[in-house]
C-alpha cells in the first residue's frame, strides 16, 4: 500500500479512483502521565508522553484508513491529510483521510 500526500505517483498512472477513505482514532492517556505533564508546565519543554500518545494514535488512524482502502480494492492512497481535534479534557481525536486509487504497474 502506497501512502502519499501528493496528488499523483511519479511514473505511474491512476487507473481508477475509488473515492475517499478515512480512519480516525480517539485516545486518552492515564492520570500518571498527566501529573508529569503538570510538572513540565512549570519548567517547559517537550511532553514526551503526549508526543508518543499522539504518534501511536496517528499510526492507528492510518492503519484503519489502509484497511478501508484495501477493502475497496485500492493499492494506493493519495492526497492524504491529517487533522487533530481535542474533544474533551484528556482525549484527542486524530483523523486521517485520502483518496483511494488503483495505480498502474504495481503488482500486489
Amino acid at each position: 500500500m502506497f501512502i502519499s500526500n501528493l496528488e499523483f505517483m511519479t511514473g505511474k498512472t491512476v487507473q481508477q479512483h475509488l473515492g475517499l477513505v478515512q480512519g480516525s482514532s480517539v485516545r486518552a492517556k492515564h492520570a500518571g502521565k498527566d501529573i508529569v505533564a503538570g510538572f513540565k508546565n512549570l519548567f517547559g519543554g517537550e511532553l514526551k508522553a503526549y508526543t508518543e500518545l499522539l504518534h501511536e494514535s496517528r499510526e492507528e488512524a492510518t492503519e484503519r484508513m489502509i484497511e478501508q482502502a484495501k477493502a475497496v480494492g485500492a493499492n494506493a492512497v493519495l492526497n492524504v491529510r491529517y487533522s487533530t481535534s481535542s474533544i474533551t479534557a484528556g482525549a484527542a481525536e486524530i483523523y486521517v483521510y485520502g483518496t483511494a486509487v488503483v495505480l498502474d504497474g504495481i503488482d500486489d
Binding site: 501528493l6 512549570l42 519548567f43 517547559g44 517537550e46 496517528r58 492524504v80
Partner: peptide
C-alpha cells in the same frame, strides 16, 4: 514516494 511525518508536543514554562 512515502509519507513521512514528525510531531512534537511542547509546553510553555
Amino acid at each position: 514516494q512515502a509519507l513521512v511525518s514528525g510531531s512534537v508536543v511542547i509546553a510553555n514554562d
